[in-house]
Design a protein around this nucleic acid. Structure first.
Lengths: 216, 216
DNA sequence: GCATGAAGCGGACTCTAGTCCGAATCTCGC
DNA sequence: GCGAGATTCGGACTAGAGTCCGCTTCATGC
């Protein structure tokens, strides 16, 4: 396991540091060739994934399409999951912004319960829209899910809202809610059980509220 | 993906068919050599896993230790996860029996909420006791978790209890609760966050009850 | 400019899961 | 018993993820 996963790469999130853990791994000095290759790889991966599906693309394919060696790929992104994380970065960041400074009920201003329900629906739809990538990012390595910066953000947000709602053991319940929003689980509901996304979102939002209610 | 995963192998669960989906794939005719090899493989796997840990054992190792070809291994168990499922079979079956015909609050007789809490704790401790095997069985293949017979049992049981408690969307919430009991999640709580098993059990049982409460 | 050391590069290599198919073995009807 | 046909066996083979390390390229101080 490399220590440099997603090195300098998400270089646009510095506001909001005080409140929530948004990562901006030091935007130290990225060498020109490194930057060029990073962009090439990301573009190549996006192209290939779109064309052949995430499962139909090997790391060799990505390296070849990007005109880069495999070593470069791995030095940069750690593993296949790291590549997925990098590709998801923009979308996740956008949702993070809506949470931090967007309009209620997702953004600040609404009651914690309402915000939690809104978050549940918004996050579910992000996952559903990028199912394969999220799945890859969560399962490439055991426990990968818990190690991404994005996860830390979602968890922290849920904990905050649950605490605000007076929920006992907010930490645990935040994890429980997020466990239900795993790509694997969402895929199961959507594909295997053929549930309707909107209905699922409503059901999960209701469940989140049940979880949030303070002890009687 | 083979179609014969875990063929004739869990040949001891026929009672309780009416109430819950316990699988006993036809105990048709297992050839003598096949039976001998199945036992050898299971014994070899148990030995190796105990000695070197699940992660430190390859399928080649198991085949060699069992004195059997790799083809045999795969024909029999489908993949590494199938082997784990077979190894877990006995333990899971025992819990299933306690649920079906054991003493309350786990067994019949107690109120649905109490049974749900008891199930949560009992299942959590089963998972914790066999973390590596359960992890393997759940993650060897995407969606593997949802395909095992054992999972169908746990889910059905939770659905039944939640319905009995008057919970809206019992199906969805059963899945949500079980999502919090995946090996990945449990491992995270136990190993990464170093939570205490007993406290975790209590917290999850409480969360299960919150999930179970009927809409106000 | 240019020397120099650090960072980045890339492709050959390893390791393991999973597949395939000819050969061996078993079961059943006679 | 015994032959026929299906089932099982087993090890060589494939594919793809991830590692390694000598070579190249860059950025900085002079």
């Amino acid at each position: 396991m490399p220590e440099d996963v997603n090195g300098p790469q998400s270089g646009s999130s510095t506001e909001c540091r005080a409140e929530l853990p948004v990562l901006d791994r030091g935007v130290v000095h990225e060498r020109a060739d490194a930057a060029r290759n990073r962009l090439r790889v990301l573009a190549a991966a996006e192209r290939l994934f779109a064309a052949r599906g995430v499962a139909g693309v090997t790391m060799d394919d990505v390296a070849a399409e990007a005109g880069v060696g495999k070593g470069t790929l791995y030095r940069r992104f750690g593993d296949k999951g790291g590549l997925a994380v990098a590709l998801l970065d923009a979308r996740e960041h956008e949702l993070q912004q809506r949470i931090i400074s967007g309009a209620p009920p997702l953004g600040p201003g609404a009651a914690p319960g309402a915000r939690l329900a809104a978050f549940t629906e918004a996050y579910l739809s992000l996952v559903a829209a990028q199912l394969d990538l999220v799945l890859l990012s969560e399962t490439s390595t055991p426990g990968a899910r818990f190690r991404t910066g994005a996860f830390a953000f979602w968890r922290q947000h849920c904990r905050y809202l649950l605490s605000g709602a007076g929920t006992p053991q907010a930490d645990l319940r935040a994890d429980l809610l997020l466990a239900g929003l795993t790509a694997e689980q969402v895929r199961h509901w959507l594909d295997d059980e053929r549930r309707d996304l909107a209905t699922l979102a409503a059901g999960l939002a209701a469940a989140a509220l049940a979880l949030a209610r303070p002890a009687r």
